[in-house]
Design a protein around this nucleic acid. Structure first.
Lengths: 147, 147
DNA sequence: ATGCAGGTTCCCGCGACTGGAAGGTCAAGG
DNA sequence: CCTTGACCTTCCAGTCGCGGGAACCTGCAT
């Protein structure tokens, strides 16, 4: 099976599949012409990777998960650990985005959006700290800067 | 005022301030020794940028917002437009992350996390589509791939 | 023989920085 | 005057996960 077929089956662009080989996630065979030849196991791995990536796991997470997947003596605790760490980072990102959303939607709501130059959004960015939202977000982002 | 003072005041790393100059967001003066010399306006712009970046605006958004900020004849509608676009992209990201969170937290919850190899997380990644969550997320990510 | 759709490698670019090397400058202390 | 150490400068490389495109090779149909 050539790369474009595998691309269609896995949903991954051919470029991505080549990249995954380059970084050692898969090792497809090569035909006499130099073309990559994918077997069922390669395809299986690629769909695994596509699914893991779609859940937001990093490439290195995927490498670890793939290794665990192929290790029949793995402990499910190890898998769960990777997933929980990722889940926590998703949580952090959601909270960060929600804090932005809160502040921004408030500013947008208060902006007339007409031809006049007066604009609460610019006022906030310029540091006129009369809204309270500024400082609240600042605290939040400070808390989250560790990650 | 030298760069480390400005860094302390604006909260931005010196590296970042140099980068902002490089891409033309600020144009600090130079002393006879070649050191950057920042005036109040530079500092004002940098705190503006720090605030805008902390709200998730891209650098190009920041460039536009800064230009609007300095244009006394701007229409607040233009500012609002930039902010609304950004707000929409924040919304998309939140929904994407929430979809991941839903699926992942379900998988984590169902994983025993012990010494045994059986693991619903790996089963899902491997494509055993008996949960229903897989397909639901797939639909979602397909919808969102446009952005 | 020709065309074209596939495949291959290679290198550059993205965004928004961050780290580090190599070197110039400044103020204080011996 | 010399040294030390903290600053400043520029420049280059790396991050993450690919995507674009050049230049070239292969396979198959006409």
């Amino acid at each position: 099976m050539n790369i474009s077929d595998v691309s269609a089956r896995s949903g991954l662009p051919a470029k991505t599949i080549r990249y995954y080989e380059e970084i050692g996630l898969i090792r497809p065979a090569r035909g006499a012409n130099g073309y990559r030849t994918f077997d069922d196991n390669d395809i299986h791995k690629l769909t695994f990777l596509a699914r893991a990536r779609s859940l937001g796991f990093t490439i290195e997470d995927c490498r670890a998960l793939l290794a665990l997947y192929e290790d029949r003596d793995r402990a499910s605790a190890d898998v769960k650990h990777v997933a929980e760490d990722h889940l926590a980072s998703i949580d952090r990102k959601i909270r960060e985005l929600q804090a932005m959303h809160t502040t921004l939607s408030d500013l947008v709501r208060r902006c007339q959006g007409d031809q006049r130059p007066d604009c609460p959004i610019l006022q906030d960015l310029a540091g006129s700290a009369d809204t309270g939202a500024h400082e609240a977000l600042h605290e939040l982002t400070l808390e989250q800067q560790k990650s």
